[in-house]
Lab assay of single mutants.
Amino acid sequence: MAAGGDHGSPDSYRSPLASRYASPEMCFVFSDRYKFRTWRQLWLWLAEAEQTLGLPITDEQIQEMKSNLENIDFKMAAEEEKRLRHDVMAHVHTFGHCCPKAAGIIHLGATSCYVGDNTDLIILRNALDLLLPKLARVISRLADFAKERASLPTLGFTHFQPAQLTTVGKRCCLWIQDLCMDLQNLKRVRDDLRFRGVKGTTGTQASFLQLFEGDDHKVEQLDKMVTEKAGFKRAFIITGQTYTRKVDIEVLSVLASLGASVHKICTDIRLLANLKEMEEPFEKQQIGSSAMPYKRNPMRSERCCSLARHLMTLVMDPLQTASVQWFERTLDDSANRRICLAEAFLTADTILNTLQNISEGLVVYPKVIERRIRQELPFMATENIIMAMVKAGGSRQDCHEKIRVLSQQAASVVKQEGGDNDLIERIQVDAYFSPIHSQLDHLLDPSSFTGRASQQVQRFLEEEVYPLLKPYESVMKVKAELCL
């Protein structure tokens, strides 16, 4: 049975990233139509530049190519590739079939990587351009969430054990800070992308030097003109047959890092959902379990974690691919890159769409948070109580021993009897502590235990987050809708 299948058929496997999760716009960027249309555009740009620099290419040939950029006979191309065992030459023939007058000058002087690699770089750039505003929107939604809850005390956790208090907004800023680093890295790697350009079979530009009869300047002009037509500021000066596969490492490393950030955020949300302090959106008709109707599973956060793990592992592909590119190139890269580049971007696209949807509907339960604080705060307040007693004339050592005994009794009630923490009640009825009984409410005010959390939130948002989001103001209103 021949390899390949009808990918629109229910009898043929289709990647869930495309069929179930990723956005239509990201799927289109990695589609065959987008790819092969870009090949034709690159052939047109090459012909236009070659004509401008004096090669015998007519206006009629150029116009014929322009008129057929979208006229792609995919069936013919597939048949040609089956016959020739070469995808680029299959599309040269297919393009030439609908451009008979231009057929002889299509791909003039070029090698397969002229269309293959340059198209990949265009796709990487455009895919990054799709991700950047999506990530900015996630940051914006979380920034709104953090600002609104900047002063809401909550129990902090280290080692997932109760620690000092923080605020809900401050905790959210930990998430935002990681995503801001990801946004900066995505922008950097996007701006650092260079075009492969017009380089020939081993990167020496020998074929173009021959076409222009040894004119170095025209060869350099050709490279520059096509690079500018493709919208790049610069091209690699040095290439082998391909652009260095280190570029793929750079791009997928940034995406993998984004995956790590999203995994951490969504894990926190899942843990908070278990504590009943916070939940992701839950639709009115949504079913959490087929057997347990009360369940409210954090399905979206779980999906993000599941896909983020996949995204983090994909960076190993370009690392290994770059390491086995012998001399000017081997074909070890080809099949692998067809999979890992598309999957990385479709996965990143999915987790950003999902995280935006989550961040637009996060639900906080202040009463649950308050109750958990009441359970733990008495123990945390013991040092403040000791200091207040010393100020009232008591002995630190005597007070410490009193607190120690009462704390152990209260802990026994919590752990052995399943009761509430009654340390404060014990202190309130103990005559030894009568000098500070009137101060206990103040000493137990949760806001006095959150330090500068709310001020940190305000400063972080104003100095770091809002300036970073400013270039994306025009796209901030787009909502994230999930079908599944």
Rank of each mutant, 00 (worst) to 15 (best):
P16I: 14
T227P: 04
R188N: 07
R309L: 05
L211F: 08
I287L: 06
Q221W: 09
Q325I: 10
P56I: 06
G203K: 08
S454K: 14
L108H: 07
L135F: 14
L42F: 03
L469Q: 02
F232W: 05
R309I: 07
Y114W: 13
E70D: 14
L319M: 07
V198E: 03
L482M: 15
E283T: 13
L135S: 09
H217R: 12
M389Y: 04
Y13H: 07
F36T: 15
K233M: 10
T354G: 15
E401H: 14
T350F: 03
T167P: 04
S140N: 14
A206Q: 15
A388H: 03
D332M: 04
E50T: 08
I385A: 04
Y466C: 13
L484P: 03
R14W: 10
V138P: 04
K66A: 10
T202D: 06
V457Y: 00
N353S: 13
P56D: 13
Q458F: 11
F74H: 09
D6F: 11
I238G: 07
I249E: 02
Q51K: 10
M312L: 11
L183S: 09
A3D: 14
Q456K: 01
R83L: 11
D6K: 14
I385N: 03
G240T: 09
A273E: 14
S289L: 00
M312C: 11
K367C: 07
T330W: 02
L183M: 10
V198W: 02
L131K: 06
E464W: 07
M316T: 13
I339N: 10
Q408K: 13
A22I: 11
G54M: 09
E481R: 15
E302F: 08
S334L: 04
R426P: 03
V115S: 06
G200L: 00
D445N: 11
E70K: 13
H217C: 13
S290M: 02
A143R: 02
F236H: 13
V254Q: 13
T244L: 01
Y114T: 04
D182Q: 01
K170P: 01
S257H: 02
D73N: 09
A342L: 06
K66Y: 11
L341N: 12
T38A: 07
S306K: 06
W175L: 01
H7Q: 14
A308W: 01
S359F: 14
F145N: 05
S207R: 02
F282C: 01
L341G: 13
D87K: 00
K35D: 03
V226G: 02
L121S: 08
D248I: 04
V138H: 09
Q416C: 09
S207W: 03
Y432D: 10
H91K: 01
A308R: 02
K391D: 02
E228S: 12
D144T: 15
